[in-house]
Design a protein around this nucleic acid. Structure first.
Length: 565
RNA sequence: GCACUCGUAGCUCAGCUGGAUAGAGCACCCGCCUUCUAAGCGGGCGGUCUCAGGUUCGAAUCCUGACGGGUGUACCA
């Protein structure tokens, strides 16, 4: 439920009733429990405009709140804050509705927005490395989030499958003559070997160069080799996707090369519209605020990634009818996207109303704050990173010794992959972040394990109880009320995370929810002997609803829960 | 040089459209398991929110400048 909107509407109504001619600002969550559940801080700002003291305005607002079942108490505090307490009976009955609803009272958008999410986008010439992790994980969460809230989501994996290096790669693949799949088992090595041969063997280099030309002119033989190469490389990516449990599949691939045919028309159209002009022999679009232009066509007639991106954005807006296009790409390309969006709108490839956003993110750094590399300075392959995560998780649970031997591998996988994903998602995506194994695989603090532990603890209580849950939720203790209100906030959190493409809003919420539950649990016994049956039933229901909310939140993050830890 | 971005506790990070005494986790110190998972909970220590101005009743948040870090800067993607 959209709790904040409901409260905002109440405040808005009081403005009308009181004849206050101003637009109220939004209520905000109370900064402290003593200040209630929500607070309205708009009275101070209106003081000058209305010629009244903030406290006068505040009391005018309060006087007009009238009879509403969801607010139990209001007060004017300090200079003119209005503190608002929700009625615990009202909260309790909403929670009773929530636990009977699969969607936890989270509404589905009545008018779905067609949203394209462009993410992962690995280069087919190389193995996936840690640089692809953030895009893949953040993008996947956005897809799940948008979809859950009811938007029409279209996944786009804009794989890099075109460029001069493929001439060399297919020539080398041909000459190595081995079984293609196994020889491409380590793409990184394959690329290096090809490069060595290219640099040392002039006949091979000539063949490679010839293959680039033949490839670009549509030669059947080279195209066949190239398709074979891309096919194998893509399968490697799919292995990683399966390991990570992300949604991307072969149907979501819309490769760079698929836009090749449209590129001349894009350049022509930009030129015809007078948007692109020639400069130093290249066809360029100059954009206000950038001193370097977006180059649409090279001096030699070739096209660049900017042209491909323009073709792609046009395809997404026109063919896919996207109303929102999100590019989950690292922050270094912010300049490029600024130009791209400007040109796309100016050229009319995309309507003005379409939301174009660069969901940018920072770099992954190691513990000492340097770019995350292997000991010898190479890029860390994603496959190795994920293997290490699972291996470390396995070691931990073996030491703990609470899992059955046959379950260990699966549990280790859930924990290890979950920890890596959560680490990516829980920090503000815009800044660089430090990747530290000890931190991400910890049970303390804002980690996936802490949430999984909270969930597992609740499952354990439910198992001990055994029988079906009964009764109603009663909110008596202060911690119960706070937990209850927190549970009702989930939709507001998901909505703002979706609006701003900020997955860490969700992780922060889940962490706060889990810590609140832990406190509640420590202070309010559930199954102990002296607990009144009605209260016991209520607390069981509250625990169960908390678990469901954690599970739903983690599901949107693409992280699995465990019944036992 | 120019552009973008960041600067919050010893470390890693939250802090939403400006609001009350700036919050977590780690580390360090102290307490809590005969009973629901102690991978937990409670308490303590720790801050000139880089600095200087400005706007405002009110600034970590907005604006300007300085300093410091990162990134990008014409035919690679």
């Amino acid at each position: 439920m959209k709790l904040k909107s409901i409260l905002n509407q109440i405040i808005k109504d009081t403005f009308v009733k009181a004849g206050i001619e101003a637009k109220p600002i939004s209520v905000s969550e109370a900064s402290k429990p003593e200040f209630g559940d929500y607070q309205f801080n708009g009275a101070m700002a209106l003081s000058k405009k209305l010629g009244k003291t903030p406290r006068e305005i505040a009391s005018q607002i309060i006087a007009n709140i009238g009879d509403t079942e969801l607010i139990s108490k209001t007060e004017i505090a300090g200079p003119g804050f209005i503190n608002i307490w929700l009625d615990s009976k009202w909260v309790a009955s909403r929670l009773d509705e929530m636990r009977l609803d699969d969607r936890l009272l989270i509404e589905k958008n009545t008018t779905p927005m067609t949203t394209v999410v462009d993410y992962s986008s690995p280069n087919m010439a190389k193995q996936m490395h840690v640089g692809h992790l953030r895009s893949t994980i953040i993008g996947d969460t956005l897809v799940r989030l948008f979809d859950f809230l009811g938007d029409e989501v279209i996944l786009q994996n804009h794989i890099g499958d075109w460029g001069t290096q493929f001439g060399m790669l297919i020539a080398y693949m041909e000459s190595s003559g081995e079984d293609t799949y196994s020889s491409l088992g380590d793409l990184e090595q394959f690329y290096k070997d090809a490069k060595i041969k290219f640099d040392s063997d002039s006949d091979f280099a000539n063949t490679a160069r010839e293959y680039v030309v033949r490839l670009q002119s549509g030669d059947d033989y080279c195209l066949k080799l190239w398709q074979q190469f891309i096919g194998v490389s893509l399968t490697h990516c799919e292995d990683i996707y399966a390991e990570l449990g992300v949604l991307l599949g072969r149907n979501d691939v819309r490769a760079e090369s698929s836009y090749n045919e449209c590129l001349p028309a894009i350049a022509k159209e930009l030129k015809a519209k007078g948007i692109a002009t020639e400069s130093d022999g290249a066809l360029c679009v100059f954009v206000d605020g950038s001193d370097t232009p977006l180059i649409v066509q090279k001096g030699d007639g070739g096209f660049l990634y900017a042209t491909t991106d323009l073709a792609a954005i046009k395809y997404r807006a026109r063919e896919l009818e996207a109303q929102r296009i999100s590019y989950v790409v690292d922050a270094r390309q912010s300049g490029h996207f600024k130009q791209l969006f400007d040109v796309a709108k100016r050229a009319g490839f995309v309507n003005k109303s379409v939301i174009l956003e660069h969901v940018s993110f920072g770099m992954m750094l190691d513990k000492s704050g340097r770019p995350f590399k292997t000991r010898d300075g190479g890029t860390v392959k994603l496959a190795n990173l994920l293997d290490e995560a699972v291996a470390r998780a396995k070691q931990m649970i073996e030491e703990r010794g609470t899992q059955k031997p046959e379950d260990i591998d699966e549990v280790a996988h859930t924990i290890g992959i979950g920890a890596v994903k959560y680490a990516e998602l829980s920090v503000n995506r815009q800044s660089n972040y430090i990747f530290d194994w000890n931190k991400i695989l910890s049970f303390d603090g804002n980690t996936s394990l802490y949430l999984q532990y909270a969930y597992a603890r609740i499952q354990s209580i439910l198992r001990s109880h055994g029988t079906k849950l009964e009764g109603k939720i009663l909110l008596i203790d202060e911690l119960e009320v706070r937990l209850g209100v927190m549970l009702l906030k989930i939709e507001d959190v998901l909505r703002s995370a979706s609006r701003e493409s900020m997955p860490h809003y969700v992780t922060s919420y889940l962490y706060e929810l889990s810590t609140l539950f832990m406190k509640f649990y420590e202070h309010n016994p559930i199954l102990k002997n002296n607990v009144d049956p009605k209260i016991r039933d209520s607390r069981l229901l509250l625990a169960d609803l908390t678990a469901k909310t954690i599970r739903q939140g983690l599901d949107i993050l693409g992280i699995k829960v465990l019944d036992k830890l």
